[in-house]
Design a protein around this nucleic acid. Structure first.
Length: 793
DNA sequence: GCGCTAATTATACCT
DNA sequence: ACAGGTATAATTAGCGCG
């Protein structure tokens, strides 16, 4: 019986059933039933772009001659498409099986008349979604017929699609069953290794509450089975973990293999598997690693679950049961400590669940916007998210998608940065252009499809010529990038418009707010993508021209400011800092917008603002009394906490009290405390990222030496990990020969003078030297002139 | 070989 | 595996030096 269905798409994959490819749409209906819709009607295809002056009839014949009867080619048809903006005739080759595509791509590419084979590397289910306007995390209307659930798939019903899905406008997100999990492993000998160390706890949190699965002493075979059972019973739509793609899942898989336990946790009772962008896929559900999201949180320097949960307000750090990671095994072996370990494990899952609640609404909107499935979208890098979005725009414009090619890195000039006017300033206005690069790309119709190469003629009034670099872009038709950006800007405008009509407590308001944020992120990423040599839609002159227009714009803005008597203090790429003069600022903004055709905003006003001679570093006292710290070591994760605290405090004292002596006294107190050993060693730890494998380093860097010590002690370290170390006393001059991972160090071996001079005093002096303080006086204690005296000079 | 400076390497920030 | 621009520390190379 044919029937209609509203489906919110959770996951998509494909299978070949009896030599027929089947697209599988896993989702949730408006009456909250979990269903699988199978579409048998879609076939894989790709395009062949012939060289010019090729007889298309012969070309079609040539392709058909390559056909292997066991891998049918269903059709070869001539189609009109565009490639780099130019109309082209291409051949669309449709196969029966997705596996045939790579085979025929290779064979056809070898034909002498073939210029290029295109879009042969787009995964089958992505192709399906793009071509049918199907979006993950969005609603679709379907005409279906119920099928017998022959394989006993874990859904309420299985349907056969009678027609292609149609997008259905609906903002709500269905109630989803979310499961957070976390494992604890026995780690008596450093980092746990699966062949030796069992999983001792699996902690689970869902809407049903918390549950902890405990190993029997050192035997985890039973909890692995319980884990599988729990998943099939609770039947989550979304499974979340923290670093689960790279730790929990591989570990569970290895332990399960050891015990011969089948991890039949997907909705089709298959095991989890490695998939694109390094994520682990569980068919019919969305498995999400929240660590991928944490990586984008620049404010959180050391990305532990505790820190992320604390930052997001999910679980304050001071309320957590924290146990030393190294002592987990000891807690396990000692029955009297079991309860604490359990609490710790439980809080991990609860935190993960809480973080998911904050992150998932955004992830869903990002998935919906980019078309990248929910379980992949956080794992996919920004470049790929932008690319999938652009591929949809390209599809709707009939533009063929260029192949991914390896290009050598080609640097080009970027934004303009002014030398700041050093010292203290009062009443400073910060103005910046809203989304400058995207707007420039639109304004000058920049794109790989509108670019006019130097040898090609173009009437001066029909093209834009970029300043400095001279690249030309046709004024018409609109470039793909322009269309894409226009769409994003219009979308954001419309979303914000609808938000105004809603109460901020309305669940739809939050959905829209997250949608609006996702659109903004994508808009901001367009320029970066444009200049990425790995991009399919890369063309160097586009990026170069955009940056050149940017420099031109900010230079013109600076000129106008000066012209209007506004003293320019600093500027970086799309922002300028000027002396605040309320009456002039208004006229200035109007003039900039009128003459440059771009929106500029008064971002904030600083009562007091401080610059050193260095660019990209400043601090300001805002009108509401807060202090902004930008670029200073105090916001960099590679300085010890104590030195950061000192620098922040010094800046605060200077900006709000203007009392140099107070700052000096404060620094001296800290110096004395260090020398007396009265500081918490944790505040002396320096964290640095391991950015490559240890043998690739060309110098003996401190954190690398520390990493080697950790490795020797049985710790596992990977690229991207942060190494925490302290500098200890020793015979060597070199810091790198006097480092110790902080986990091995004690306070009495610390090189206190290193911390005094190279950390605390160094950062304090960064500020205080502008107020007549010298290093010796900080270290010894000679009286200083006050700021008042200093300013009178 | 020594002592110095310049160059290189590495990291993390800003827009 | 989104861009370039910038600051900074520490290590290492290179230079003069009979």
């Amino acid at each position: 019986m044919p029937q209609k269905l509203l489906l919110w798409l959770l996951d998509v994959n494909y299978d070949v059933e009896g030599r027929i490819p089947v697209i599988k749409l896993w989702g949730i209906t408006d009456n909250e039933r979990r269903v699988l819709v199978k579409d048998y009607s879609f076939r894989p295809y790709f395009y062949v772009l012939p060289k010019e002056y090729v007889d298309m009839k012969k070309a079609v014949k040539d392709i058909k001659l390559l056909e292997d009867p066991s891998e049918p080619i269903l059709s070869v048809e001539e189609v009109d498409k565009k490639f780099f903006g130019k109309p082209v005739k291409a051949l669309k080759v449709t196969c029966l099986l997705p596996e045939s595509v790579p085979t025929y791509r290779e064979k056809i590419a070898k034909l002498d008349w073939v210029e290029e084979v295109l879009e042969a590397d787009i995964r089958f289910y992505m192709r399906y979604m793009i071509d049918n306007g199907v979006n993950p995390c969005d609603w679709h209307e379907l005409e279906v017929e119920e099928e017998k659930n022959v394989n006993n798939i874990k859904v309420d019903a299985v349907y056969k699609a009678l027609a292609r899905p149609r997008p259905y406008p609906k903002d709500e997100v269905p109630n989803l069953r979310i499961l957070a999990f976390d494992i604890e492993c026995y780690n008596k000998a450093g980092s746990p290794v699966p062949h030796r160390d069992p999983i001792i706890m699996i902690s689970l949190t869902s809407s049903e509450g918390n549950k902890i699965l405990l190993a029997e002493d050192h035997d985890d075979s039973k909890i692995l089975k319980e884990f599988v059972d729990y998943i099939q019973t609770y039947d989550p739509d979304i499974i979340v973990g923290y670093n689960s793609n790279h730790f929990d899942w591989p570990y569970i898989q290895a332990r399960a293999k050891l015990h011969g336990v089948k991890l039949k946790i997907s909705r089709d009772f298959a095991e989890p598997h490695q998939s694109v962008y390094g994520h682990v896929s569980v068919v019919g559900r969305a498995n999400i690693d929240l660590y991928d999201y944490a990586e984008e949180l620049m404010e959180v320097k050391i990305k532990t679950l505790e820190n992320v949960a604390d930052y997001l307000g999910v679980m304050p750090k001071d309320k957590r049961t924290l146990i030393d990671y190294l002592e987990i095994a000891e807690y396990w072996d000692n029955p009297s400590k079991h309860a604490i370990l359990k609490k710790y494990a439980e809080e991990d899952a609860v935190s993960t669940y809480g973080v998911a609640m904050e992150v998932l609404p955004f992830a869903m909107q990002l998935s919906r916007l980019t078309g990248v499935p929910l379980d992949q979208v956080l794992a996919a890098s920004v470049g790929f998210r932008v690319e999938w979005y652009l591929m949809r725009v390209a599809y709707s414009e009939g533009e063929l998608v260029p192949n991914r090619v390896e290009r050598k890195y080609e640097p080009y000039r970027g934004g303009l940065v002014l030398k700041p006017k050093e010292g203290l300033h009062e009443n400073i206005a910060v103005l910046d252009f809203s989304a400058m690069y995207p707007h420039l790309m639109m304004k000058y119709n920049i794109g790989f499809d509108t670019y006019v190469p130097p040898e090609e003629p173009c009437k001066p009034d029909e093209c834009h010529v970029a300043p400095e670099v001279g690249h030309r872009f046709k004024k018409n038709p609109p470039s793909l990038y322009r269309k894409a950006i226009e769409k994003l800007l219009e979308l954001r405008r419309a979303i914000r418009e609808s938000m105004k009509k809603l109460d901020s407590k309305d669940p739809c308001y939050t959905i829209l707010d997250n949608r609006q944020k996702a659109v903004k992120t994508m808009t901001n990423a367009m320029y970066g993508y444009l200049g990425w040599t790995g991009a399919r839609f890369y063309l160097k002159p586009c990026a170069e021209a955009t940056a050149a227009y940017g420099r031109h714009t900010i230079m013109a803005t600076i000129k106008m400011a000066k012209d209007m008597g506004l003293q320019v203090i600093y500027g970086d790429t799309d922002s300028i800092f000027v002396k605040y003069d309320q009456s002039k600022i208004k006229a200035f903004i109007e003039r900039v917008e009128r003459e440059l055709g771009l929106e500029i905003k008064l971002e904030k006003v600083y009562k007091v603002c401080f610059f050193t001679e260095a660019a990209k570093k400043y601090s300001g006292l805002t009108l509401d009394g807060r202090i902004d710290l930008v670029g200073f070591e105090a916001v960099r994760g590679d300085w010890c906490e104590l030195a950061q605290e000192v620098q922040s405090k010094v800046i605060e004292i200077i900006l709000s009290k203007k009392d140099v002596q107070a700052a000096v006294n404060y620094v001296r107190d800290i110096i004395n405390m260090i020398r007396a050993g009265k500081v918490d060693m944790k505040k002396l730890v320096i964290w640095k990222t391991l950015s490559k494998s240890l043998d690739e380093y060309e110098v003996e860097a401190a954190h690398v030496q520390a990493a080697k010590q950790l490795l020797a002690a049985g710790f596992k370290l990977e690229i991207g990990d942060k190494v925490g170390f302290v500098v200890v006393q020793g015979p060597s001059e070199k810091v790198s020969e006097r480092v110790k991972p902080y986990v091995f160090a004690t306070m009495n071996e610390i090189d206190k003078e290193y911390y005094v001079k190279k950390q605390v005093v160094a950062l304090a002096m960064r500020i205080l030297k502008y107020f007549g303080v010298n290093e010796e006086s900080l270290l010894s204690g000679i009286k200083q002139a006050s700021l008042f005296d200093f300013l009178r000079k």
